[in-house]
């Protein structure tokens, strides 16, 4: 695990983020829906090669933040950069991958056709595409289901296909919104091994999750509540600061303002 101090992660500096090892920088990022503030002046800095976990209850602004970063929602105010480019991305859009919370795969296509669609969108060559397809299908344990229509798969399987689609072009930054929902524990372990691999190859992975116990596997965990980052740091650090033994309790402590 890469060692980095909490302070440095939270810091915001001027300059091109791509030059200084920062994959994502948001400053005063805000999103309002009518009179609801979904994301409240968020300052976030995520270093390259980080496995970053966003945790927090429903409605805490995790998904909205990600949607702004991938260009699906326009911020009400504030700015954000991904790989040094201001959102919405244009030049670097090929370097991000996104797995939305809803499964968002084409259920009227087969599993392989879904992967091929995303591969060809990124102009992957046929050979590379098939190679990658095989690799990912085995990672999500669907090697024998390549020719099945996605509509015939179980919910968990669809989720796995969705994850594979997001990873097809091996992006530098991967946004995964609840990737482990409906995935059985054994396979979930496999996923996390894979995320570690990605990190080892210098990829940045941003994951939102409900499962606090999984978040322990992240390098840095950002705890969100009501559109704000209430605490951020390595899991160990967060537990120490809140004198708790797990992230769930730590989250409760930070929510109540007990810690810090």
């Amino acid at each position: 695990m890469r060692k980095r101090s909490v302070k440095m992660v939270g810091a915001t500096r001027e300059g091109d983020a791509s030059q200084d090892g920062r994959a994502i920088v948001t400053r005063q990022l805000r999103k309002e829906f009518d009179d609801l503030v979904a994301v409240d002046d968020l300052d976030l800095t995520i270093g390259k090669g980080t496995l970053y976990g966003m945790i927090g209850p429903n409605g805490s602004g995790k998904t909205t933040t990600i949607k702004m970063l991938v260009g699906l929602l326009k911020p009400s105010s504030g700015t954000a950069e991904v790989l040094g480019e201001r959102i919405p991305l244009k030049g670097r859009i090929s370097d991000i991958g996104y797995m939305p919370q809803e499964m968002a795969i084409y259920t009227d296509l087969t599993v392989s056709e879904n992967l091929q669609l995303f591969g060809s969108i990124y102009s992957m060559g046929q050979e590379r595409l098939l190679e990658r397809q095989e690799e990912l299908l085995s990672m999500v344990d669907l090697s024998d289901r390549g020719d099945s229509l996605a509509s015939q798969l179980s919910g968990g399987m669809k989720h796995r296909v969705s994850l594979a689609c997001a990873m097809m072009h091996d992006p530098e930054v991967l946004f995964l919104d609840e990737p482990t929902v409906g995935v059985d524990p054994e396979l979930r372990m496999g996923f996390w091994h894979h995320f570690d691999d990605l990190k080892a190859r210098g990829r940045t992975v941003v994951i939102t999750t409900h499962y606090m116990d999984e978040a322990v596997r992240c390098d840095i965990v950002g705890m969100m509540r009501q559109g704000k980052l209430i605490a951020e740091g390595s899991p160990r650090d967060l537990m120490d600061r809140s004198s708790t033994s797990n992230l769930e309790d730590a989250f409760m402590a930070f929510s109540k303002g007990v810690a810090e």
Binding site: V70, G71, L72, I93, S94, I96, Y98, P100, E102, M103, A104, I105, Y106, T107, F118, I121, Y122, S123, C165
Partner: peptide, 13 residues
């Protein structure tokens, strides 16, 4: 409604 359009829009398409 299924979110596939959103997903396409986060690609170079």
């Amino acid at each position: 409604s299924t979110g596939t359009l959103d997903r396409l829009l986060t690609t170079p398409l």
